[in-house]
Design a protein around this nucleic acid. Structure first.
Lengths: 215, 215
DNA sequence: CTTTTAACACCTAGGTGTAAAATT
DNA sequence: AATTTTACACCTAGGTGTTAAAAG
């Protein structure tokens, strides 16, 4: 019952794919550490509040609904994961991404070359080969069931069309200013496949994030 | 721009599939003849009003969104094609099913066994083998851009939840009574795969339609 | 005390037949 | 004259933060 979309959504651009090759593109969300956090209001920061064991949980994969698609088509458009749904219900049977509240996570984007040897039609877990994984430092976030930081609330109300009912028409624009410490990313981010075959983690170092108006 | 869902939608039950085999299930709509029709109001029937050439048009395939899926799963549920969209725009580039107005058509349901030799991930046309096609006499219909028959309008308003705004709360139920000649089918229909390998057309003769409340 | 749940008003997004206008 | 298109009010369906209640 308790499931919400991820917002802002992860949006990426891809370069360097084989134009005629078919690819699946997917996203998952993995723990950054095994710590539980609490927000200290008077110092405006997250502090460690305990430990958790994430080791037995395999993260769920969300396949981009346009999959599978040719490299040419993927590269021509911004790839948006705006329908990804998060839940804290560990018994979820709708295929949504399951997270624990008050923990730190980071999204990963996987580009999976279609291989006729394997059936990728309904991927539940990542194949052993032909996968390129990217993650961006800037997309780390902390999960909550109630907002701790009023700047995040402001960002959501101003940028999420479904929250338009809470907007104050007289307030100034530019809410992203000054938020770079707590919510620093502006999708789309860039996945550069010219580095294919090299280090498969940490694509952010070899590719340039591309600015946009976000969410 | 002009596209509407097909209503009532085609709904079928399937029997006799291999439980572990993966299947795609798809629908398309083919012309019944090459005639153009007009509705003669005072005699309440469709009359031939000319000829058309359908020969060069390949019908578009709508893949059921649950595809691919195991035979076991397909057999456990009613398979509903309630999101199929029809259009009369021959230049449509959204993948909707293209029909000409004032013509007679019938839907066909295709059950496609997944074959690792072929890529069925984004089927544009039917494969040469491993396909079983069913059609039901009762599902024939005539396309219009404006309703000719007030009984059809009544049926739609009473049965389509999106038309609830036009319902007359005091009017009697049971609008399907007496409509069997013009709109006789009540999904779901039954596809019986015990006949697999036999005649691939006209599944209606060897299987029993199953009554339901429809729409 | 902290954290989570559920009901809510207020939105976006899109599926209806209608009626008037436009097209053929 | 027949058919198609368009704008429209009225729905369904579902995504927001808010708030009060519930749970721990």
């Amino acid at each position: 019952c308790a499931r919400r979309r991820m917002f802002p959504s992860v949006r990426v651009k891809v370069k360097g794919l084989e134009p005629l090759q078919q690819y699946y593109i997917a996203i998952d969300v993995v723990p950054v550490d095994s710590k539980r956090y609490r927000y200290v209001y008077h110092s405006s920061q997250w502090m460690v509040a305990g430990n958790t064991d994430h080791s037995c949980i395999t993260p769920r994969l969300y396949i981009h609904p346009d999959s599978p698609c040719s490299g040419e088509t993927w590269m021509r458009q911004i790839i948006s994961f705006d329908r990804v749904k998060l839940t804290n219900n560990e018994m979820d049977d709708k295929g949504h991404i399951i997270l624990q509240s008050m923990h730190k996570y980071k999204p990963r984007v996987h580009v999976i070359a279609q291989d006729s040897r394997f059936d990728l039609a309904q991927i539940q877990s990542l194949p052993a080969e032909g996968v390129q994984t990217f993650s961006f430092q800037e997309t780390e976030f902390t999960t909550v069931t109630a907002y701790q930081n009023q700047q995040i609330t402001k960002l959501k109300i101003d940028r999420n069309p479904f929250a338009k009912g809470f907007r104050d028409p007289g307030r100034n624009r530019g809410v992203l200013d000054g938020l770079l410490e707590t919510y620093p990313w502006r999708p789309p981010l860039a996945l550069d496949f010219k580095a294919f075959g090299a280090d498969s983690q940490g694509g952010s170092s070899s590719s340039s994030p591309v600015a946009s108006s976000g969410g």
